[in-house]
Write a protein that binds this DNA or RNA. Sequence first.
DNA 1: CGTTAAATTGAAGATCGTCAACCAAGGTGG
DNA 2: CCACCTTGGTTGACGATCTTCAATTTAACG
Lengths: 250, 250
Amino acid sequence: MAALAHSVRSEDPIANLLLKLRRRDQVSEHEADKLRGSIEKINHCLGGNVLVREGAPLSHAVLLIDGYVARYKDLADGQRQITELHVPGDFVDLHGFLLKHLEHHIGCLTPAKVALVPHERLIELSETEPHLSRLLWLSTLIDAAIQRERILTLGRRSAIARVAHLICELQMRLDVVGLADGKFDLPLTQIDLADATGLTAVHVNRMLRQLRTEGLMSFQRGVVTIHDLDGLRRIAEFDTTYLFLDAAPR
Amino acid sequence: MAALAHSVRSEDPIANLLLKLRRRDQVSEHEADKLRGSIEKINHCLGGNVLVREGAPLSHAVLLIDGYVARYKDLADGQRQITELHVPGDFVDLHGFLLKHLEHHIGCLTPAKVALVPHERLIELSETEPHLSRLLWLSTLIDAAIQRERILTLGRRSAIARVAHLICELQMRLDVVGLADGKFDLPLTQIDLADATGLTAVHVNRMLRQLRTEGLMSFQRGVVTIHDLDGLRRIAEFDTTYLFLDAAPR
DNA sequence: CGTTAAATTGAAGATCGTCAACCAAGGTGG
DNA sequence: CCACCTTGGTTGACGATCTTCAATTTAACG
């Protein structure tokens, strides 16, 4: 189902991005063309590929068209923490535009299709399309808001709420780009979920079982099925406002 | 000692901000004047004051001149999580400029002195001083990098490492503005530290005792004294690169 | 069909939280 | 000036949550 939705839209690499931006503000066809024109090329990556390595000099920003991509950091003993999960339509790497290099890695959790936008063209956009570039900056600020919510989750929520919250967030963000409606593809391992929630894979497994037996959701063979979104949100104390889906700047 | 350093510089409200920006790039006197001129007024706040409430419409950005300010989120059961601590010289609220309202609170943890910069003047700056405004944007991206490090800390580090890491980070950030050299004022409660590290106050207390008895640092009556910075950093796995103190964009 | 990675479950243990008591400091009002 | 009160700090005993370790099952794939 998600695959179908994708194939319908796949001709336009910025279709998902536009869906997201237009939740927040108008984007003219002219601006959309500028954005499309800024893409240098489109790459297909394998699951497990590292897109950006910590410290490496950056020349391109990455727009995620299809698949799941994560920003993550590693500790010396091999522990990993995913700091943010990206869904199709996310501009993954605008941060790198000004930072010049990143302090974390960016990798594909699944096979992914990404568009590369050279930094020079972003500079052009910032000079010729102020409104559009404000919208792009806005999305880096929303990334920061998503990260703050994650800090709250990791610092103060129980394991069951962490897992539920992650699923609620993905459901909402995927819904914005038409890739979820109570059911969505999420071809990640429980290890990935553990790295995102700050838990062990074993405990994630137990929490998923609990959510399943309580009739709230299931996660099997890479597919999430939500049976009781309200119940799930209640456990997670999920409140969409941090995603800024209705703001209307100009 | 910190009080002395402060009184010497207190004539210039952007002194600390300049110290920080100039670690990353040149800032001309002209740009500094523009920045100073954008300040509308200077406020003195009491400890405990809420500077920005979640959801409230925003018209000004806040530059922290003196004191400690925190961004935090609350849960229904009264638990609190500090998502970022701000030190003198931090532009606390550039995020609000584009977001128009925040999804979290900003409050004073101590008495604080803040400068208010109207959003209109920030717009002016963005139009007339592109280099300067890029530097300001950069600092929001570094905020995001600090938040990512906190996600790693909360998700994957032990309690002792969380406390040590927080102290290491504050030491480094205060050092940049000349407010720390192995000893610095930190008039926060252990409850504040608990809210920042995702622990309980009781456990923070135990971790502080452990750090003290191991001869690494002490925290008493609002003063942090670091006895063994290397040792502290080793426990915390602290690596300064995420603070981007040596980057040189232009 | 065999091989490997991932999922699942149980048992045991560590870390951190909860509860409760007590202490110290600082501010307030009589 | 001092009793009182409040807030924050400190400690111990106990318990819950989550991790670790290990074994087994299931699924995915050549």
